[in-house]
Design a protein around this nucleic acid. Structure first.
Lengths: 401, 401
DNA sequence: CCAATTAGTTTTCAATCTGAACTATATGGG
DNA sequence: CCCATATAGTTCAGATTGAAAACTAATTGG
């Protein structure tokens, strides 16, 4: 018997309403709602909203931005918005690059920097050292724009335990059970640095700063094939936190052996290596090979076209199964699949229609437009969302300071 | 922008705590906790628990059962338990039988009755008429035992819309967009009759009255292959309510055409028809054919053995994919697969180990022991759980009456 | 310049939990 | 047999918080 359910206290009501008001302000992008509008939108009384907003303003999460006027009569309202002088640093370690970004509470990417970096097989300490340099740039940018950094998010391409900051397994980096110290990247940030999975973060980035649909499968084609499952505007992580492994859905029971130990996984047909190999592109860095592949596709070379067509076909099999099982009727392609977007789309749609007819309308298969910033935005966004969802804890902390 | 989030009111605290206390009483089966124990268990003060329990007792949901003594010193406590003189009727329409059961709040099956009935192709009105006869038996049994019927649950083998009591599609009954009137089965029951899907109800029955693991996939092998996904002790239904379609996971891209329009679905390899056909058993009712199959297996007939082995193999493929995708590491076999339990287990385990090595320990693949009552218990249990989760609404209603 | 209108604040009230004091009821040793 | 001790449960004052309504503030249009 688990007993995780905490008793309701009188004060819980305020926790919830603080979050409700803050979330309403966050949702109303560009509109800068007044207290009265918030009252109407949330169902709270004006009195309650006033009291809640007072706390939020005092803590610095929300700022008043001049008077709001609609041309009608009556006293104008005070426009409210998330304080754009508070920010979170999103950071990403990937196989062949490092990146950081500074995202303000309102969701604007205020600074962005990335460097190529061959991180495969490099010890975490060395990679973190290099990342610290980028983080310093972000801090400098924040100081220049007078933005206070509340915290950060760090996404890595592997399975992580965010409580203990452990990278359990990042096969493409050749990391296994590596202890990271992400806090050291942003000394003194009150909310610390949250470690997360790259595909999940990219899915969340897509949710918060991309298309915005509440339910979709995000397919992240990096070296492996990863995925993030968004249901009801929340990330589905599963009981153990490792859900979304689209790459290891079995798409052919007689398929080749997979690095995971299984057979016929999607990754063996649609992973980057599999596609390059099928297309006959063996040499060079990831970037070079991607360039060669796109060139071959543009030149209508049969072998490349077939490689991508097959990948799309098997991706369709996996997505048909996943959509049916989880009742999710939208898919967003990211990473490698976004790069191959228009090339892979036809065979993927054909395959979906063959294996799950009528399930997924073509307009619900989209390509992410966030490109490389999606993961960053998602990594930072998780920290921003945690504040929006539990502002009370933040208020307490800022009261003490 | 959806705005489903209701503002927190002061009174919400009591809603939550009523549910917390009621749930604590429900969880503590056989222990009959005192108010003081509940206070310790929930984190509420004794004063709060006393007040909450008073409301619950007054509404008739909870009853005081004599004094509690542990042999120590001190005043003995009043034992509390869910009122076993309140019940819910679980009902099930299936392809070849109808069944009803009376379940009291404490979860005891107090009455059970089932009849064989060939319902395939029979109009809903006729089936409902026959079911009403069984429901009358349950009502009589409740009257005889002085149990007040609060409501009912009706499970059907198909996709339902529970708001409008519509059976959207029950292919095995040949029902399509049929309007049911389940309330008429239990006139005057204050909580009405809730329509639900058979596989989902069976999964919930397994959750509440069976094994009790918080995360598992329930596989319901009836005429089709259905499934129920339990995550965090809750049913996962997906955004549209039709999740769990294990039967239409693609297990072989070159497989046969499926009734769903797709190709190579699990159902085409492991559905009842597929197994009977592969085993060469074409004649007779479902029951007769099942008997023949089991006899053939017992006689070690090669064709039957191979049919079941293949079904297990493909079921393993589907479960490997589903487990990986959703990060669920336990499986419960129900329906036909429970009947075939020991015969299908070896090839299923082999297959799981081949396609998702190390993911699912053999002890996490279990066979449901609830047999035919699982669905009933789940159907009734949904109504019972709705009371446990929102007792406040129930109190209001009983105050008015 | 005033009526109408809308924004936001103040005040009173009710709901509900906590905490502490109090009452109720049992056991066991002298 | 009685009283110290222990545990169960109740009562009551105090704090938090939102609802409702009255009130103040600021703006427009005639």
């Amino acid at each position: 018997m688990n007993e995780p359910t905490a008793p309701g206290r009188v004060g819980d009501v305020r926790r919830r309403n603080l979050s409700l008001v803050l979330d309403s302000i966050a949702k109303t992008v560009d509109a800068k709602p007044s207290r009265a509008q918030l009252a109407a939108g949330t169902g709270l009384t004006k009195a309650a909203v006033s009291s809640l907003v007072a706390d939020l303003v005092e803590s610095g999460l929300v700022s008043e931005v001049g008077l709001y006027r609609d041309g009608e009569r009556g006293r104008p309202g005070q426009g409210l918005e998330l304080n754009s002088r508070r920010g979170v640093v999103g950071m990403e370690i990937n196989v062949d690059y490092l990146a950081v970004g500074l995202v303000d509470l309102a969701g604007n990417l205020r600074f962005h920097s990335a460097v190529e970096s061959r991180n495969r097989g490099v010890p975490p300490a060395r990679v973190m050292e290099q990342l610290a340099g980028l983080a310093a740039e972000a801090k400098a940018a924040a100081a220049a724009e007078d933005i206070a950094i509340l915290g950060g998010g760090l996404a890595v391409p592997g399975l992580v335990d965010e409580k203990s900051n452990l990278v359990l397994s990042a096969p493409n980096l050749h990391w296994e059970d590596e202890q990271l110290h992400p806090q050291s990247l942003l000394d003194g940030a009150p909310l610390g640095v949250k470690l997360s999975n790259e595909a999940n973060s990219a899915a969340l980035g897509e949710l918060w700063y991309g298309g915005g649909a509440p339910d979709f499968l995000y397919v992240s084609g990096e070296v492996g094939v990863g995925g993030g499952i968004i249901i009801g505007s929340e990330l589905y992580t599963g009981p153990g936190g490792s859900a979304g492994e689209l790459g290891h859905i079995v798409v052919h029971p007689e398929g080749p052996h997979c690095s995971c130990g299984g057979w016929g996984c999607l990754e063996t047909f649609a992973g980057q290596e599999a596609i390059f190999e099928a297309a006959g592109i063996a040499e060079g860095t990831l970037g070079e090979r991607t360039g060669l592949l796109l060139a071959a596709l543009a030149a209508r070379e049969a072998r490349a076209a077939e490689a991508v067509r097959d990948a799309g076909r098997y991706l369709g099999v996996a997505l048909a199964s996943a959509s049916r099982l989880m009742d999710i009727e939208a898919v967003v392609l990211g990473g490698h699949f976004a790069v191959l977007g228009e090339w892979i789309r036809p065979s993927l749609l054909d395959s979906l229609e063959r294996y799950a007819p009528g399930l997924l309308a073509p307009e619900n298969l989209t390509v992410s437009r966030l490109e490389h910033s999606g993961t960053l935005l998602g990594a930072a966004g998780q920290v921003i969302r945690s504040v929006i969802e539990s502002p009370f804890e933040f208020l307490l902390a800022s009261k003490l300071a």
